[in-house]
Amino acid sequence: MIKIRDLEKIYRTEEVETVALNKISIDVKEGEFVAIMGPSGCGKSTLLNILGLLDDPDNGSFLFNNIEVAHFNERKRADLRKHNIGFVFQSFNLIDELTVFENVELPLIYTGVKAGDRKKRVEEVLDKMQIMHRRNHYPQQLSGGQQQRVAVARAVVNNPKLILADEPTGNLDSSNGNEVMTLLTDLNEQGTTIIMVTHSEHDARYSHRIIRMLDGQTVLENIMV
């Protein structure tokens, strides 16, 4: 599904040049659950941003479903993203002005799904995430665990092929964290590819494979048994 080769990302200011990704090469197969770990500043988030088509690399190749996307323009990236990729963030990133229902509905609006279908699909996914009873609440009225379930619902409502999760349990207690990890595992079992950045060895154990990074490079890969 994902094939990156010699990917480079360098951040430059007037005086300093920081190599965030140093000729990194990774493959992720469809249906895989991959965890990326490493110390702060090792380039995990940069890698995730490039994989999520939020950022573009300076050099190297990025094949997404055998299409070279490394140098797509913003419109093409947005198009590919909204049809194929779902995101789950550490800080949930729900829009405060929208209700639970409206937050989950948002990706469907951007992909042009009709109102009737949208309602059906949002209700289905809220039901599945067991958050239906909170559909008319605003994010500030929910607990952290509930907010993250809404975020996961929003990530999956479009049936994406890939979910990118950036420390999804970072802001949760262990019970809520486990719940979210179970949700992600269920999704993976249903066929969704998941790439997760995490600092937690416990969460990483839910994945099939752990990629460890240091200074913009992969240093080790653990296959989970």
């Binding site: 913003e74 419109r75 947005a78 993203r81 990133n93 729900l94 829009i95 405060d96 951007y110 992909t111």
Partner: peptide, 16 residues
Amino acid sequence: SREVGIRKVLGSNRSQ
């Protein structure tokens, strides 16, 4: 900025 970021991540393009 956060709201704009979320919308962009969820597939909104600049013109939207």
